[in-house]
């Protein structure tokens, strides 16, 4: 039997209009933004207020752009 392939997540649409330089909290199925904050704790707290106890979190940079991830910083952040 062929091995199951787990689905990736389409975060492109949901994060395009989201705040930048921020922590974003998402529902567990990653379909909706339920929290935002300058700190991780703020984003989680807002998610919990919105009824999501264990949100998915993601850092939204100032600009979504291709990068060599191993580069520790982006040029714009280093300025």
């Amino acid at each position: 039997m062929p091995e199951e392939i787990r689905a990736g997540t389409n975060l492109s649409n949901i994060l395009t209009g989201a705040a930048r330089n921020s922590w974003i909290a998402l529902t567990e199925d990653q379909s909706k933004i339920v929290g935002r904050g300058e700190s991780l704790e703020q984003a989680i707290k807002e998610a919990q207020k919105n009824g999501v106890d264990d949100p998915i979190v993601v850092w939204a940079p100032k600009t979504w752009q291709p990068c060599v991830h191993s580069w520790a910083t982006r040029v714009e952040d280093a300025k």
């Binding site: 091995e3 199951e4 392939i5 787990r6 689905a7 990736g8 997540t9 389409n10 975060l11 492109s12 994060l15 395009t16 600009t63 979504w64 752009q65 291709p66």
Partner: peptide
Amino acid sequence: KKQYSSFPLDEQNPAFPDEKEM
């Protein structure tokens, strides 16, 4: 096995105009 996930792309690379997300 897992599919890659897509992330926003703010500015398209003119060399790859079909790539609208990462």
